[in-house]
Design a protein around this nucleic acid. Structure first.
Lengths: 144, 144
DNA sequence: TCGTAATAGTTGATTTTGTAACTAACAACA
DNA sequence: TGTTGTTAGTTACAAAATCAACTATTACGA
């Protein structure tokens, strides 16, 4: 028999996660939006290529948890901004390798520095232990 | 001088929060979408009215962290579904009290039960301590 | 009490996302 | 080969979110 206590919205994880994600995400969005006119998916693609190097669209999608149509559109935008170049794969002409240009790398360097500062500010008031638990739990919850 | 270590996307809180929120949110979305054809904001408004009782649109917005245009549209939808009624406030004719109908209360009872089960499943593999830390951190991060 | 400012809520235009259908290229196997 | 199935990526259309402007009402100060 399940405990018949009332539902508590304030301990409902999807709600709390969403609130925290929106709150923090929107603040950081201001940075990449104001500075480079980028959208969230564009920042995410840039971050993945900057951090992990050249890869295909499908690979970014799998790693970053982003749908291929969003990737496709983000790639077009990043290309227009001059941040990204495509290189056809001779071995499999369906796919293209996506890599950052000098300009894209500079943008990544700039934004990742800001992200680091932003993250430090966010975690400033959390103990080392809490941070570790939080990160572990979030990864667990994100992993399907 | 700031530590010059490389940026680590996998410990960047806005990213992790977003991934976890999307993953869990989309799964629960299936429930209220399939069962009642509701959108996220509609479920959120229903949940707030069901849990905390009659209040105005602005009040829901402030509590739930949702913009007034979204609330406005969600209220129309919930009204159409027969889940919600408006009562004009005589004392201030700009605002209306929003309350759930019997039908809305039944939907809330149903969905909150599912939410409870869903949450229990999510936290099943987390220790009591981890859950407590996680919830505390999320509330902290969501609180501006 | 008149004029200005502020608040509650709605609406419309624009942007962004989601869904499904599509093209092109490769793989597997009779 | 050829035919069937799968994968990479794009595109078109519908759904939803965002942003700014709008109406109606109340608050406040000269």
């Amino acid at each position: 028999m399940t405990p018949d206590t009332e539902f508590d919205l304030h301990s409902f994880l999807p709600y709390l996660l969403n609130r925290a994600a929106e709150e923090t995400g929107l603040k950081f969005q201001k940075i990449y939006k104001d500075r480079y006119g980028m959208l969230r998916t564009e920042w995410r693609v840039l971050a993945h290529l900057g951090r992990f190097g050249t890869m295909t669209a499908t690979e970014i999608g799998a790693r970053a948890g982003v749908h291929k149509t969003k990737i496709s559109r983000a790639v077009v935008r990043l290309e227009q901004l001059g941040f990204l170049v495509r290189t056809g794969n001779e071995a499999d002409r369906r796919q293209e390798f996506l890599g950052l240009t000098k300009k894209g790398q500079a943008a990544y360097a700039d934004l990742s520095r800001s992200a680091q500062r932003f993250n430090a500010e966010l975690t400033r008031t959390l103990s080392e232990q809490d941070q570790a638990v939080l990160i572990r739990c979030l990864k667990h919850l994100a992993a399907v």
